[in-house]
Design a protein around this nucleic acid. Structure first.
Length: 580
RNA sequence: AGCGGGGUGGGGUAGCCAGGUUAACCCGCAGGGCUCAUAACCCUGAAAUCAGAUGUUCAAAUCAUCUCCCCGCUACCA
């Protein structure tokens, strides 16, 4: 990472990996993209940047189509239900999307088809014929993993067409003994089908140069991308024999749809366009995407490590083949978040599943606070209930919460809820600390170092607690007039520190930050720039302080654990959806 | 199997690319202090042969080689 990089003037487009909506999001999905993207987007807005935060549901592709066959529902019924669940959960987490859309919208279909046509006109599309497994019963071409059979090496009877889970060997579907369709169990036949391909090899030099130029990318991202280039790129099939998806706008291919990995990233563009249209500024998207009009803009992609090749190779290649559009400025490839030492798994029901969180009685900011520590910036992280409880109680409630609470209750009880305007000494070390921390946090967040930034904030509140302790205002208030004046000064500084902390914390715990500022009766226009500066020229009255955060009890944690680690099956969701 | 990343006190992490003070931070633990604050807060302390082995170097958590373990990708899951 380039530590000296700074956010320059110009717009910021924050893009979050589009969740594939074939299930309810789990905690790993939140920590792995939505939360870090949101923290960064909120920070950019707080700094006064014109910021746009875009995401949406990825609804096309084989798994969705297969699920509709298995569940006997239409694709629309399924995706409508899942879209609403996803949206509800992200809203609950206060993920501040400017537009959280979906790939089944007409704007998306139109944008994708135009995008395809442009690439086609530019000569980056070729034709070819593939022989693929086909199920005559389900009338469906089967992707490798939807063909099951016996492994030729270890005789495992449930090997998939792409890999045997028992002996981990990579396979081809035609190697399987006794192959059968995963959906209905019938034996698939092999059938030829015409397909379209993206000519990636034409773009190798351009891609290579671009990847190498991005010195500010994380090591994991740049190494993986260069690894793909080194291996050599070949043309990639971009069409599928499915009904559910974006139809291919080309004669002879109208019965097919574009591959979900072709249409999904175009969602970033189409959802931006949709946002612009909705807000009656139909050309505004160009200020983020257009090579000329959006020259000063920067695009940040937040994605999981499984997505790195798509965002560093295939999607950039599509942009290059299209022309006239901006490439990502930074691809923040995050690692995975495990649960209690093992990877999160929907099928084994291992992890925390988000659908019950809104009813859990634990504030979303409590989750956001702890989950920020779990953002797997450099390596896989691990969720542990014990750590969750400890950190929330000792840091969030005990350190930050306590400092703000002890300060404001002191003002309320001993100073009648009022603070006079005080002459601040900028040389006072604790005041200097505020400015120093602010600067450090700017550097860290400009470089998308989210966890380190939160740690810095914690250390500032730590210093606040120490300052309070060392200066003993509770003794001074009982002393002489001089002592009382000194006391007021100390409490003023602590209040200033509380205000600064809540502003610094806004990207992380936005709801609580707002509550603190309300309690302290603060309403700044330019929040970030006011950090560390005197908050009033006249007497300042605060509102009656209330406890900001409840501590987590053992019972509460046990209750939580019992509810949120269970996953509701899709069938049940669809039933509920129908009933309501 | 190939490619990429990771393995750091009891738990969670930073440091590694640009080798160099007693390996940093948070939680936990032990002892002490304080009483404004939600038994909160403050101080002190114990605890790590930096996955293992070999090498380069005056000097290695950091560079190189090999081994073991975990994760991701390998082009038709997304």
């Amino acid at each position: 990472m380039n530590e000296n990089e700074e956010i320059q003037p110009g717009r910021i487009l924050v893009l979050c990996a589009l969740p594939y909506t074939n299930a309810v999001p789990h905690i790993g999905n939140i920590v792995g993209s939505h939360l870090p993207a949101d923290i960064f987007a909120r920070y950019c807005r707080l700094r006064g940047k014109e910021t746009l935060f875009i995401g949406g549901a990825d609804e096309n592709g084989t798994p969705t189509e297969v699920a509709t066959i298995e569940l006997h529902v239409s694709p629309k019924q399924l995706t409508d239900a899942l879209y609403l669940i996803h949206k509800k959960i992200y809203n609950w987490f206060w993920i501040s999307y400017d537009n959280f859309s979906r790939t089944s919208t007409s704007t998306h279909h139109k944008t994708t088809q135009e995008f395809f046509s442009k690439i086609y006109e530019n000569g980056y599309i070729s034709e070819g014929v593939l022989s693929l497994p086909y199920c005559e019963h389900d009338k469906l071409f089967l992707p490798d993993r939807y063909v099951e059979g016996t492994c030729p090496y270890c005789q495992y009877s449930k090997a998939r067409g792409d890999q045997c889970e028992q002996c981990t060997r990579l396979l081809d579907p035609d190697q399987l003994l006794k192959p059968r369709c995963k959906i209905c169990g019938n034996t698939p036949i092999v059938k030829e089908s015409k397909h379209l391909f993206l000519e990636l090899e034409k773009l190798i030099p351009q891609l290579d140069e671009w990847i190498r130029s991005n010195k500010h990318w994380r090591i994991q991202v740049i190494s993986l991308a260069l690894g793909w280039i080194k291996e050599g790129l070949k043309r990639r099939c971009i069409t599928r024999d499915l009904k559910w998806g974006v139809p291919v706008p080309l004669e002879g291919y109208k019965e097919k749809v574009l591959y979900v990995w072709f249409d999904a990233p175009i969602g970033y563009l189409s959802f931006t366009k949709e946002w612009a249209e909705t807000n009656n500024m139909p050309e505004e998207w160009r200020n983020y995407w257009d090579l000329e009009k959006g020259k000063e803009a920067k695009i940040y992609n937040f994605i999981g490590k499984d997505n790195i090749p798509f965002h560093t190779i295939f999607w950039p290649a599509m942009i290059m083949a299209h022309g006239g559009l901006k490439l990502p400025y930074n691809v923040i490839g995050l690692q995975y978040c495990n649960y209690e030492g093992d990877k999160i798994s929907k099928s084994r029901s291992w992890g925390i599943f988000c659908e019950k969180l809104p009813e859990s009685g634990v504030d979303s900011d409590v989750w956001r606070y702890y989950l920020t520590y779990l953002i797997p910036e450099t390596k896989d992280s691990d969720f542990k209930w014990e750590d969750f409880e400890n950190r929330v109680n000792s840091e969030y409630v005990g350190n930050i919460g306590n400092f703000i609470h002890r300060t404001s209750t002191f003002v309320w009880k001993y100073l009648g809820g009022e603070l006079p305007a005080v002459q601040l000494n900028k040389e006072e070390s604790i005041v200097k600390e505020i400015f120093l921390t602010k600067k450090k946090i700017e550097e860290l967040l400009d470089n998308v170092r989210l966890r380190d930034a939160l740690t810095e904030i914690l250390s500032l509140s730590d210093k606040g607690n120490r300052y309070f302790q060392e200066n003993k205002p509770w003794e001074l208030i009982k002393g002489s007039e001089t002592d009382k004046e000194k006391c007021v000064h100390i409490i003023y500084v602590c209040t200033l520190l509380s205000i600064s902390l809540s502003i610094l914390l806004e990207p992380f715990i936005p709801k609580t930050s707002e509550r603190i500022l309300n309690q302290l009766n603060i309403n700044f226009q330019e929040k970030w720039d006011s950090i560390g500066h005197p908050f009033s020229k006249v007497k300042h009255k605060i509102n009656e302080p209330h406890v900001l955060f409840e501590k987590l009890t053992k019972e509460k944690v046990e209750m939580l654990k019992a509810t949120v680690t269970k996953m509701t099956p899709l069938e049940e969701f669809l039933r509920k959806e129908k009933e309501s």
